[in-house]
Write a protein that binds this DNA or RNA. Sequence first.
RNA 1: CGGGGCGUGGCGCAGCUUGGUAGCGCACAUGGUUUGGGACCAUGGGGUCGUAGGUUCGAAUCCUAUCGCCCCGACCA
Length: 579
Amino acid sequence: MRMSQLFAPTLREVPAEAETISHQYLLRAGMIRKIAAGIYIYLPLAQRVLQKIERIVREEMDKQGGQELLLPALHPADLWLESGRWDVYGKELFRLKDRHERDYCLGPTHEEVITDLVRREVSSYRQLPLLLYQIQTKFRDEIRPRFGLIRGREFTMKDLYSFDKDEEGLEVSYRKMYHAYSEVFRRCALEFRVVEADSGAIGGSASHEFVVIAETGESEIAYCDNCAYAANVERAEAARDVTESAEPRRELELVSTPGVTTIAEVADFLAVDPKQMIKTLIYLAIDKEEYYPVVVLLRGDREVNEVKLQNHLGCLHLALADADTVREITGAPVGFAGPVGLKDVRLIADVEVPSIVNGVCGANRADYHWVNVNPGRDFVVTEVADIHKVVAGDKCKVCGHALKTTRGIEVGHIFKLGTKYSEAMGATFLDEKGNKKPFVMGCYGIGIPRTMAAAIEQNHDDKGIIWPMPIAPYQVVVVPVNSRVEEQMKVAERLYRDMLEAGIEVVLDDRDERAGVKFNDADLIGFPLRVTIGSRSLQEGKVEIKKRRTGETMPVDIEEAVATLQELIRAEMTKGVSL
RNA sequence: CGGGGCGUGGCGCAGCUUGGUAGCGCACAUGGUUUGGGACCAUGGGGUCGUAGGUUCGAAUCCUAUCGCCCCGACCA
C-alpha cells in the first residue's frame, strides 16, 4: 500500500472528545471515526487490525473444535420472551417493531437464537459436544458508552456456545475455552490476568474474565501474588478475620452526637476506630413488580459490594433508599441509622459484623448514637452474608497472603450457563438411556474492538501506538526521507516491491512530505518496523531499519534489507509477548 | 436517570460577562522557495455560531425550550 493512497486521515491535534489513550490514538492515527455516541466507523487500518485479531480468534476456536456459523443480528421478540429475558434485560436491549407492529430486538448476545437452533436440529447425545461460534455485531444500548471502543453500543464480538450432555462435558468444554482464550490474548501480545467473575445478567454458575491490565480499565480486580487466586472485586472474597476479641462486653450507652453523621465524623467525634463502627445502610431491593427495603450492616471501614448483595438477595436491581424511606424505617434522618431496635425489616449483616465487640452505631434518633453495641445481645443477627468489598491488603482466602488490586479491561468472559436457557426454552436431547435431558451449556465471548483498544492502552508511548507484530495493521513502513530525490525513491520502490513479493505487509510512504511529517505519522500509526532511506546511509549502500518499540536503529545493506526484515518479523510473530 | 461540563469553518480554540453583524492556529487549494523529526512566503476558498422560539432597531452574545456530545456513578465483551 502506498501512503499517498492509504485512507488514514491522521490528526495532529487531540480531538476534544477523547479522554483515554486508545481513543485518542485511534482517532489521531486515522483508524476510527465516530458517527454517534458509542458507534464508530472503522477505517482501513483499524479494519486490518480487527481482521488480524479475528483471525487469531478463529484459529484458536477451530483448534478446540469450534465451528463457525453466522446468526442473525435481528431477533424476534418471541425467543426472548421464551427465555424470560425480554423483561429482564431491560433498557439495554435495542427494541424495534416491524411494519406489522411485531416486536424485535437487535441481539446483544445470542443464547436465545443458538438455543433455538440447537433444540430443533440436535436430538441425540451422539451429536454432542457441540461448539458453535460466530463473529458478529452486537447491539447494546449502554447507559453510558465511553472510552471510544472500550464501551460502544455496537461492537463485534466473537461468541461461542457449547452444548454438552452433562456437567462433566461442560467442564471439558469450559477448559478448552479457558485455554483457547489464554492463547488468543497471549498471541495478541497482551498482558492479562484470568479472574473469577460474577456472571451477571447472563446467569449461570462459574465464570472467568480475561482482563488486560491497564490503568484506564473499568474493571477492578483483586489478586494474590503468592498463589493463583484472582477475582473481579465484584466477586472477590477475602479470608475472614476470625480473631475473637476477649474484651468484656460493656453496657449499652446512648450518646449525643449532634449533627455527626458520617462514619468518619462519628469515629472522629467519639474517638473510635471506624472498624468498631457498624455501618448501617438502607437499600431498596427492586424486582419486576415490587420492591422492598433491606437494612445492611457492615464494619465501619467497609464498603458494600452491591453485586454480592444483589446476588444474595436475588433481586433484579438495587438502590440506596432515599431520605424519606430511611426516615420511615429508622425514624431518624439519614446518618443515624442502626440495627438496635429495628423491627419488621429484613436485616443482613456482613460476615465481619458479628465479631464486632462494643461497637458504635446510629440510634435511629436524630443526633444520637449507641456505643458498646454487641451483636446478638443488642440486636438479633439472623442473616449473615459476605457483602463487603475486598480491598488491597485483605487476606487471600486461599493462602492468606495480602491481596493486591489493579485495574484492567475485560476483553473476554467465559460462563458456565448450565441448563438455564435450555430448560427455559425446552431444548432437550435423548441420552444413552433414552431419557430427555436439557443441554448443558456454556457461553464464551471476546470483544474484538475492545481487544484492539486494550492493545493500544498497553502498547504506546507519547508519539503514538506501538503495535505488537501479530496484530499490526502493516508490519513495515518504508520511508524515503526526501521523495524528490530520485535515487531514494528508486531504492524505496525496489525494496517495496521486493517486500511485497516476500509476503511482507508493507506501506511505502511516497508522499511529498518533509521527513518529520512522515516519521511522526509512522510513529503515530505504530508500524512495528520502519525502513528509512536517506542520503546518509545510501552513500554506503545501506538503509536503516528502526524498531518502533525500542527506537533501536540498525544500518543494513540494501540487498540484505528484506531478509533482515523477514527475520525480525518472524521473531516477533511467534514471541507472543511485547518486544 | 442523578451530578458536572461543552456545542462557533474539517480539527483545536478565542469572541459571550458589558448585544452593533465572526476571528486565531492547524488543515485545505494555487504559485514560489525549502526537504533526516510536524518548513517558509504570498494568494485564496470555506462558518444559517447545534436547533426552535422569544426579548431588542439589532442576538454567537440576553431569556425559554429542545437536541447532541464529553466526564463522574448504576450496565458489560
